[in-house]
Design a protein around this nucleic acid. Structure first.
Lengths: 228, 228
DNA sequence: GCCTGTATAAAACAACTGTTTGAACCGTCA
DNA sequence: TGACGGTTCAAACAGTTGTTTTATACAGGC
């Protein structure tokens, strides 16, 4: 990304051919992608070196550039995959509760953010995006705002529909937005700022359940207080 | 921090003598400190180079190491100064409202976080710490947890005393902590995650005032809902 | 006057970074 | 078998970073 006289486009068969013919196993590319996913989620884009990734993947230093062009395109692919995972996941959750009341949907929404079972594979993959997002918070890059656009905004829109119902459709757009922010803040902060709360915030599953119930009760009362 | 065979301790007269005798003006050290404060607040520790700082301060590359030992100790001094500024500032705010009701204190607390007058010098210096803190969120370092310890924890304790009164002293410690988290989350998120809200969140002074009023109303109702 | 200690400047250093190179490897197919 | 094409590898490259060195300027004490 820094050096380079000009080139950047040698690599594999144009990425899209996807055939990966010769006996060389497909494994390397996948191993690199996996290691990169784990490391980027752990430390963020800048604090991971190409050498770290390749070592973790038992691959040569050149493999990142060979298979992905450069470090940034590798990162984009990691982010894209994480977004894809979460997308299906979230659509499903939103559709599953179509028949539920607004209160029940709120319960579901809050719990989905605050209490995740770390043993579930889906949650573990979801946490990759969450970690990537957290790192992006302090270093705004084009990719960071892409995550916001793709993952956060749809959630905010969904939450707004819930809040509108809770407000009985009688409140202004501004009030809806304010309530959405209040609720989302409670869902996001323990995630966005673990440093700030790892001493005060709950850790065990049961405590997270309690916190989720609290956030729902607190927020329902808050929203009702703003109902005209 | 990376290179260096061993040494790291030449520098000025042991830092503490503070006499800075000869005609060479004291200015350089101060200029470097000022530039570093601005740049660290803007971009965080890792994304600022010693050369950036020295160029901004119109000083030689060596001046950071000469006057502060190394980049990290310069950073610590910046953080320490910002903490000191905010400390007096916060103590004063807390004492000023001793006679106020819990509701009034809450109003004051929320407004202090959400609506700051950028024209006030105190607020501008306070925002340095806020920015440093924001950058620390995603890269936990010893210094980051030091900021939490020195700046955030006292606020949480203060907020807890307010909430206890609002709960009429009848709620459990857990409930108090939950409410504190709900309120602090609303105060902190627009700060911690501007990326997430710069499209949805208010920007003008008047909008921030409105948001602050909302957060107070929302939170008061939330707390009351949790009063036994 | 000279010597001493502080401050600044320019250049060099060593480690680290992303990237590129050129040779070697190894299946496939003619 | 031998050329071919995708893949891997060790080494090198060029730029950046924090830090150190060496030299110089300049004040005050003797």
């Amino acid at each position: 990304m820094r050096a380079a006289r000009r080139r950047a486009d040698a690599g594999p068969p144009a990425r899209g051919g996807e055939r990966r013919a010769a006996g060389g196993d497909v494994a390397t590319r996948k191993r690199v992608l996996g290691a990169a996913t784990r490391l980027f989620a752990e430390r963020g884009f800048r604090r991971v070196t190409v050498r770290d990734i390749c070592e973790a993947a038992s691959a040569n230093v050149a493999s990142v550039n060979y298979h992905f062009g450069d470090k940034e395109r590798l990162y984009r692919e990691v982010v894209e995959a994480a977004l894809e995972t979460v997308r299906g996941f979230a659509d499903q959750a939103m559709n599953a509760g179509l028949a539920a009341s607004a209160e029940e949907k709120l319960v579901h929404y809050v719990r989905a953010h605050l209490v995740r079972d770390p043993r579930s594979a889906a949650a573990r993959r979801g946490s990759v995006l969450r970690d990537l997002f957290r790192h992006e918070l302090s270093e705004p890059t084009p990719i960071g705002s892409h995550i916001v656009e793709q993952a956060l905004k749809p959630r905010l829109r969904y939450l707004a529909t819930i809040v509108e119902v809770l407000l009985e459709g009688r409140a202004s757009d501004e009030t809806v937005q304010d309530c959405v922010l209040s609720i989302q803040a409670q869902c996001l902060l323990p995630v966005a700022a673990p440093v700030a709360f790892d001493m005060a915030a709950p850790r065990t599953r049961a405590e997270l359940e309690r916190l989720a119930r609290h956030v729902v009760a607190f927020s329902l009362a808050g929203v009702r207080a703003r109902t005209p």
